[in-house]
Every structure is written in structure tokens, then in C-alpha cells.
């Protein structure tokens, strides 16, 4: 399969993350799937004229393009001209080439939250008018219109995440290579279901603290980070804690909040990220599929039942009280 990977308004972080594929090194994995990389900004040999020739051949239908990956947002500014990112050597706005390549590709993949929804690049005043490929935040239709379908009749596949997990990309491409990726493999905002129908909360190592609402108060505390530290793992769609990063780790294992980096509005949340916004004493952003009253009732109740061990360990950076050892009579 021919694959071409382009970068626009992003940080290269998704490429760097992807290069850390753990199951197999990236080259061996590519060979295994018979991937033919026409161009990847960090991996392939060709530069400048050689690259331009390849791209021209794709546009002239001389080379078929099976998978087109975009990393980074589409830069539309200023005033929709796209001139804030002129593709080097091509003397044209990057968004033009992105559009043309998307129309040639069997599958179009948005790699990372920037390419999918605009992400961090579209944050704040969004001076550069950054947007996702087929979404602007959660609004369907942007550079590519709502009705866009790639040659294989699919909308853009949004492998969101800031950065993406290497295996999310590898598994999506793997499913495509085996011809097993269909429209039913995606959720309602275009993300592959195999990781987007999980929550970061699933498998979080702090779940005992969560059950008792024993909360961390400062970075490095062991407690649950939902109440004070801005963690939204209970509503963030991703399998980070089940799948694990770099072996068996994750953001919450690293001692900091999940900030929902796979979400369409990542980067455009207005409150401060590292503290939990509250109305009165109630954190905003409780689990979305649970009646709020129940949540509050259960959590206040469990707070009053918190064992001393959990209450004290929650505000330390290491375990100060070990679990009790059960005494059995001989």
C-alpha cells in the first residue's frame, strides 16, 4: 500500500510518538504490512525535487495513493488564504495540497487532535485560523465539507490525541491494510472505536481514591485528581490506562490530570487546565452518563466512609499507611 504523510500546523509530536511504536520497531512493522512510504517528513530519504516529482505523480494519477495522513491543523489564515503556511518548495498554501491529496486518497487519516479538530493550534485567539481536516472543533465540515468521502467511501478518520498513541495509528493503518476498517469502526466524531469507546478512567490506578473521593491537593499527591486537580479522565474517551504508554504508564500514573486531549474541544476550554472548575462545591464535568444527584449523593456518602489509610495516603507522594494484613486464626 502506498502511504504519504504530510505535516502542517502542528508540533511533529505525533510523528515522534509514532516512532516509539513498541510492539515492533516502526520499520519492521511497515515491512510486515507491506507499506510503501511515498513520503514521511522524518523517515524517508527524498527531499525537495524528488518529493515534488512524487507528489506530482500522485496528482496525475500515475501513482495511487492508498492512505493519506495529515499531521497538524490545516492553516486557513489570513482571511482564508492559507498563506500562514506556504508549503516549502511548492510555492502554494499547504491547505491547497492537503485538499488535492485528500481527493486522491483511498483513506484520509487525521493524525492527532490538531489535524482532526484544530486542537492546540486553534486555541486562544486563533490568529492563523487553524482548523481540523473535516471538523472545526466539533462542527462537521471545514476544509473538507461534511459530505466529503475518500475513494474508499469513508469520511476522514480522526485519530485524535495530543499526541496520538503510537498503537492507535498502527492499529488503524493495520485494520485498513487488512481491509477491516469501515464506517462502523468510528464514533460520531470520526474516532476509531477501538480506543474511543473506552474512558481514561477505565483502569486508572487511582480508582480506590476515586471511590472514596479521597482527593489530591497538589501535584505528586497520590489521591484522585478529579476534585481539585482538573482531571477529566471520567469523561475522556481513550484507552490510555488500559493500554498504557511506554510500557505501562499514562498521564494519571505520571501524577497529573487527564486533560481530555482526544476531545474535539481540546485547547479551546476556557478555564485553567490544572484545577477543577466548580459551581459551588460541585466539580463541573462530572461523568456524562450518570444522574448528577446520584453522583453527589454517592460521593458525599463515600467521603464519610473513607478509611484512614486512603484519606492519608491521598495527600502524600508515597504510601504512608499500608493496607492491613488479614489475620486468619489457626
Amino acid at each position: 500500500m502506498n502511504i504519504l504523510w504530510l505535516q502542517s500546523g502542528g508540533c511533529s509530536g505525533c510523528t515522534l510518538s509514532f516512532m516509539g511504536l513498541e510492539e515492533q520497531d516502526l520499520l519492521s512493522w511497515s515491512n510486515m504490512l507491506d507499506l510503501n512510504w511515498l513520503w514521511h517528513p522524518s523517515l524517508t530519504e527524498n527531499s525537495a525535487q524528488e518529493t515534488k516529482t512524487i507528489v506530482q505523480k500522485v496528482l496525475n494519477n500515475e501513482i495511487s495513493l492508498d492512505i493519506f495522513c495529515l499531521e497538524g491543523s490545516v492553516i486557513m489564515g489570513p482571511n482564508g488564504t492559507g498563506r500562514f503556511h506556504m508549503l516549502s518548495g511548492f510555492n502554494m498554501p499547504a491547505k491547497e495540497l492537503i485538499l488535492q491529496l485528500s481527493q486522491k486518497a483511498g483513506y484520509v487519516l487525521a493524525i492527532g487532535t490538531c489535524a482532526a479538530y484544530g486542537g492546540i493550534t486553534a486555541a486562544g485567539n486563533n490568529l492563523v485560523e487553524a482548523t481540523g481536516l473535516q471538523y472545526d472543533q466539533n462542527q462537521f465540515g471545514s476544509l473538507l465539507p461534511k459530505h466529503f468521502r475518500s475513494a474508499m467511501q469513508l469520511p476522514v478518520i480522526n485519530i485524535s490525541g495530543c499526541p496520538v498513541h503510537p498503537a492507535w495509528v498502527a492499529e488503524t493503518i493495520g485494520l485498513i491494510a487488512l481491509n477491516q476498517f469501515t464506517e462502523s469502526s468510528m464514533d460520531s466524531v470520526g474516532r476509531p472505536l477501538f480506543y474511543a469507546n473506552k474512558l481514561v478512567h477505565h483502569g486508572c490506578s487511582r480508582n480506590e481514591y476515586y471511590e472514596y473521593k479521597a482527593s489530591a491537593q497538589k501535584p505528586s499527591d497520590l489521591g484522585c485528581m478529579m476534585e481539585n486537580m482538573g482531571c477529566v479522565g471520567t469523561i475522556a474517551h481513550a484507552d490510555c490506562n488500559e493500554r498504557g504508554w511506554h510500557g505501562n504508564s499514562s498521564c494519571t500514573k505520571g501524577g497529573y490530570a487527564c486533560i481530555d486531549c482526544t476531545s474535539p474541544d481540546f485547547g479551546r476550554v476556557k478555564h485553567a487546565y490544572q484545577s477543577t472548575p466548580k459551581i459551588g462545591n460541585i466539580p463541573v464535568g462530572l461523568p456524562t452518563d450518570m444522574p448528577k444527584a446520584w453522583f453527589i449523593a454517592l460521593s458525599t456518602l463515600s467521603k464519610s466512609a473513607t478509611p484512614k489509610r486512603i484519606k492519608e495516603n491521598a495527600v502524600q507522594d508515597h504510601i504512608v499507611i499500608s493496607p492491613e494484613i488479614k489475620q486468619t486464626k489457626r
Partner: peptide
């Protein structure tokens, strides 16, 4: 660091990961 790139473990007062 929990993960790389883009960790939040690095804080002005130290590291969030003991």
C-alpha cells in the same frame, strides 16, 4: 513523566511523579 511527548509532570515546584 507518565508519557512523552507532552507531559505535565514538570511543575515549578518539582515533579508530579514520585
Amino acid at each position: 513523566a507518565g508519557r512523552w511527548p507532552h507531559t505535565l509532570a514538570i511543575q515549578p515546584g518539582g515533579s508530579s511523579r514520585a
